[in-house]
Structure formats: structure tokens, C-alpha cells
Write a protein that binds this DNA or RNA. Sequence first.
DNA 1: TCGTGGTTACAAAAAGGTGCGTAATTTACT
DNA 2: AGTAAATTACGCACCTTTTTGTAACCACGA
Lengths: 118, 118
Amino acid sequence: MKNLVSQCPIEEVMQVLSGRWPTLLIYYLKDGTKRFSDLRRDNPTISHKMLTFELRKLEDAGIVTRTEFEGYPLRVEYDLTPAGLRLVPLIDALGEWWEETGDSERVDAGALQTTSVE
Amino acid sequence: MKNLVSQCPIEEVMQVLSGRWPTLLIYYLKDGTKRFSDLRRDNPTISHKMLTFELRKLEDAGIVTRTEFEGYPLRVEYDLTPAGLRLVPLIDALGEWWEETGDSERVDAGALQTTSVE
DNA sequence: TCGTGGTTACAAAAAGGTGCGTAATTTACT
DNA sequence: AGTAAATTACGCACCTTTTTGTAACCACGA
């Protein structure tokens, strides 16, 4: 984690939430405690390296907690923090906005165009 | 723009909003019509390549409109669409969440730690 | 030997920066 | 008058940086 000190809070949140995984992981953790392997099953296309990396980022951001238990095989549990839980409805709202906005307002892949005033 | 067709709407919104610029550009466009050069002034560290690229993405997503005027020097204006305007409060909410959550709950740079149950 | 939750090194892919070219008109200089 | 330069919003090619994937290795115990 390098430079979280920027001007505006929006820039800072986006540094944490940007990318494919952060919001998805939060989404899966909504359902309660998950282990590393659970999250991999939930999302089979993430590599284990990415998963550890993203989980650390969320941990550092105060969104998830990581709890490591003694004994073998190793067991580690991930949960949303209270702050993480408060974040869930905001992410949901983005998803709803996207659905409401609908494909009709978006450009069909392949057929880009530009409004020209002549 | 490659593959916007995925399972979940959250994954799709994040494909558009991820990165440093999209939310910032939306933020600046909140204030009303902006030209290309205005946006570069608002945000001096973005390269022209990135700015055009990001603006196209937002246009394709139905968040901004691009209006090109005849005459020289060229003039192009960017505005938020109604959908873009509806998005603004959602982004604001993320920024507020970040501020409320506060640095105290986040890990100080350089001093990472892990909860260990022994 | 397998399963868990990692780490590390190396390789591939994606993102991003820099600089040049372009359009048609105005302004600036000689 | 004639030429040169600046202007705006890009596209394109080349190159560097960052991100992500792959594979191998570790610990330990059943």
C-alpha cells in the first residue's frame, strides 16, 4: 500500500474498490464468515495470489478482518467489519443504478457513434 | 470496450468506474458543461490519451454526452447525462463512507499486522 | 500424499506516458 | 501581402511501468 494520502476522499475509496475483485469479495462476504478456500470457490477465476493480495488490501482499508486459527491444516476466516457492512448498501446502490440505467442508454458494442452538430 | 456482458451488475459498473479517473471526471462534470481542455486543467496529471479514453468509456456507458461543434479551433463539450447525474450522489456516498470510517480503522502505512488467535 | 493458506520468482498482459501528426481558421511578424 | 505560428481535440506508434497469471515451494498433520 503506497500512497493513500490524496486530496479527495473519492479518490481514496476508489483506490481500494477499483478492479474486478474488491466489490465482488465484499459481496460474497455479506453472507457471513468465509474462509480463503470458500472465496476461491465463490469466484473460481481469481488466482490465489490475487485473492491474498486483494484480501490484504481490504483488511488494510478496514473493510474485512482476518482471523487466523492455530492448528493444521491452517484455518483463516474472513469477515466484514462494521464499516464493511455499512459499505454493502452503497455498492448495491451502484448495481441497481446500473440495472435501472439499462442497456438502451449504453452504446452497443461495435457501433460507436458521436453526436455531431453540423 | 470488450466484454461488458457478465453475470452481476456490480461487476459491470465497476468495469466502468474502476480506476483513478472515472469518478473524478464525473465529479468535475457535476458543475456543468466542460470542454476537453477544461477537464485537463481540472486534472493536470491526466494525459490526453487517458482523458480521451476515459471519456469514451463514460460515453459508452451512458454517463456523459460528447457534443462536437463545427469550426476551428475544434470545440467539444462534455456533459453528464441524466443517468450520470443520478450516479453522482452514489459516488458522494462512497466518499462520505470513507471519511466516516476514518483513518483509525485503517492500517497505518508500514505497520501491517494480522490478528492471530493463539 | 493431500489439503490449507500462504510466499516468492519469473513471464505475460494490460495500462499508461510521450511525442508527433492533423484539421481549418485566426493572429502575429516581417 | 505573405508566411509562420498557435489554437483544439484528438489518433497513432513506440516504449515504460504496473498489474496479473503461472508455477513451484513451504509448513504441518491426518
